[in-house]
Design a protein around this nucleic acid. Structure first.
Lengths: 234, 234
DNA sequence: GCGTCTCTTTGCGCCAGCGCAAATTCGATC
DNA sequence: GATCGAATTTGCGCTGGCGCAAAGAGACGC
């Protein structure tokens, strides 16, 4: 691990209030990890032996059904923890984590979790917050899936991606990692065909700019305009 | 609060390892609550001033969209904590909690949470586990919503309800609180019409037995038989 | 016992979006 | 720069399940 990594870690909410000596001890126990694009950091249903801190890159968290369908649960960006299933009382990972680009991460054995909690002030509270926000995010998406049409779900997914993982360019906010129509379909519960059609329509209206494995949101505001003011069903 | 309640609480995983003296102190700070059927324990978007322990009854956790659609996120049974949003770093409740039947609960101000964590051994870990299992549950339902047809989603919802909140009778496992077709529609992202049709079909095959605001699962095994072995889409 | 209200059932038409198929485009590789 | 493979686009027919409407069926109050 480089000095650069160390100073990066020290600025994270998770470790901000750690004493330098504790931080060093914690980092000394870490196993550095380089993961090439497309490779799994961990696999669904495998024993949750480690937890991870993503230092660089983007990770796709995917659940696969017995029938073989895949659903993208979320994307993880640099600075976030991942694979904390064991700390939440699970003994296997509930999903697979796949590198969307080449990634750099740190890994610790799950058994070290309690010492993190004990030694780093605020670590537990920050983790609670992270889990809380993930829970709320998934719940919000469940509500979307239950009540909104495909068009709106795709629009929201793009909006969220641009917000969370977008890089500002002169053309608009560009999603910072390769993402296919298939990926968006797996985020929104539809097919790549429908996604392709919807994106083409948005592109014609100048709201987004597409490309191969790549999307730029030109006008975030116009992305969601259809989503409000509909009569509830039932 | 009755002596009965006190001994009930002492057997919960959350408080099992608390010393009697600590337990007493904690319970002394609680505000007992009786909630009549249909009333809200707390409302979505209200300030998360309290957390609760449900002693008796069943609570429906509902999210309402700006458009007015409602989605039932989960049901809470006796012995579970609810309204812990503040402990997860939220300052408002992300959903409303509505009593499905007359309920009895204890309420504490959110500000007391840290003292619970500090004074009761295992409290934090048990809460982590609860949150972890809720997160996994919601994720699993997101995957269902994204990949399965309405028929399967309804079947799974019934299965889950019978499992978690069922009471064994001679006719089968009966869901222990009043639940309408509309409620099931709001759990599965469909309409009460479709639910009614699907339930009628299952009833004709003897898999379930319906009634007004009430469902008994006669043959849990045959509920899900259609759910496996389908070709993935895409 | 009667009326009312809510929950449930059922019929019918329609359309969003899936499934399948084929063409096209874009990168990458040699 | 020719070839190959993967990602994307686009057409077309079909159907699951929604929307609307109206009729039954319990439960509950008076």
């Amino acid at each position: 691990m480089s000095q650069l990594d160390r100073s990066l870690i020290a600025t994270l909410p998770l470790f901000r209030s750690a004493h330098p000596a504790e931080l060093d001890r914690v980092l000394a126990g870490a196993r550095p990890l380089r993961v090439t694009k497309g490779t799994a950091i961990f696999e669904q249903e495998a024993e949750a032996h480690s937890f991870f801190l993503l230092l660089d890159g983007h990770i796709r968290v995917v659940k696969t059904t017995p029938a073989g369908d895949q659903v993208i649960v979320r994307y993880i960006s640099a600075g976030e923890m991942i694979g904390i299933a064991h700390a939440l009382g699970r003994d296997t990972y509930p999903a697979s984590a796949i590198a969307a680009v080449d990634c750099v991460a740190l890994a610790w054995p799950s058994s070290l979790w309690p010492s993190f909690v004990a030694q780093i002030p605020g670590f537990a509270a920050t983790t609670y917050q992270t889990v809380g926000s993930r829970l709320e995010d998934v719940q919000a998406r469940l509500v979307e899936m239950a009540t909104e049409q495909v068009e709106q779900r795709v629009a929201r997914a793009l909006h969220r991606l641009a917000e969370q993982s977008g890089r500002q360019t002169e053309a608009g906010r560009r999603i910072d990692f390769p993402i296919s129509r298939q990926d968006i379909a797996e985020m929104t519960g539809t097919t790549l065909h429908t996604v392709s059609r919807l994106l083409a329509a948005r592109e014609a209206r100048g709201i987004i700019a597409g490309g191969r494995q790549q999307i730029t949101v030109v006008e975030p505001a116009r992305l969601l305009v259809l989503a409000e003011g509909r009569a509830p069903r039932g």
